[in-house]
Amino acid sequence: MTQHPGKSPRVGLFATCLMNVFRPGIGFAAAKLLEDAGCSVEVPDAQTCCGQPGYNSGDFDSARALARQVIELFEPFDYVVGPSGSCMATIRHDYPALFEGDPNWSARAQRLAAKSFELMSFLHDELGVTRVDAGTPLKRKATYHDSCSGLRGLGIKGQPRALLASVEGLELVEMQDAEVCCGFGGTFCVKYPEISEKMVDDKVANILASGADTVLGGDLGCLMNIAGRLRRINAPVRVFHTAEVLAGLADEAGIAGRTEGAA
């Protein structure tokens, strides 16, 4: 990894497709957290998608095409950081696998993988951030959903919880089966909507049973799935990306808007 003593590390912010379209606030929150931690943040505007939808649909050629694009675009940075365990696991694990044995791309894929991080793990494990300044104290009881790719692919479990512990007024409660998939699964939720619904219902039942008024997580796909279901059943629970809360940028409504009667 490139070291820059005395100089702030240059971070390329990976703007995930969903965040870019549905929840730009997460991107600004990520940028704020990185800048507060001393990074200089840039957002290359030629970026599109990490290629995961193609990869997970078995279209490895398209995935490679997208991966090459990401590698070329982000190679100049010291680090690539994104507010998503899922996309960053694709860059960290799947790119090297996609180019295994490819004389032109294998080494480049590995180099990029080595300097690519999910936001929370980057802040906590790489930069050693243990406290954040989240601004005005919150009065919220939150539960954290462990998204699968981040949890099992990148070992993200303690980092967001540790950082959230420094947010004044935020009480964190664990729900049952926090580590069980919410049923999003990328295209899975539209290909197998009934199964996905059953899974998100199980997740929502655990959220409600926890007594939390807020759900936090590190992957927007899962959060949109959970929030969309909560909204549909009119449950008074709001959903945010962890970065939004840590940066003090959580709005009033939360993802999918505010349900009548929400606390």
């Binding site: 870019n20 549905f22 929840r23 730009p24 909507p193 969309g228 909204r231 999918a256 808007g257």
Partner: peptide, 17 residues
């Protein structure tokens, strides 16, 4: 498939980039 069981969160009107 999505909206049968869930609402779809609405974008803010301008992309992040």
């Amino acid at each position: 498939g999505w909206t049968a069981a869930r609402d779809l969160p609405a974008p803010a009107g301008k992309s992040f980039i």
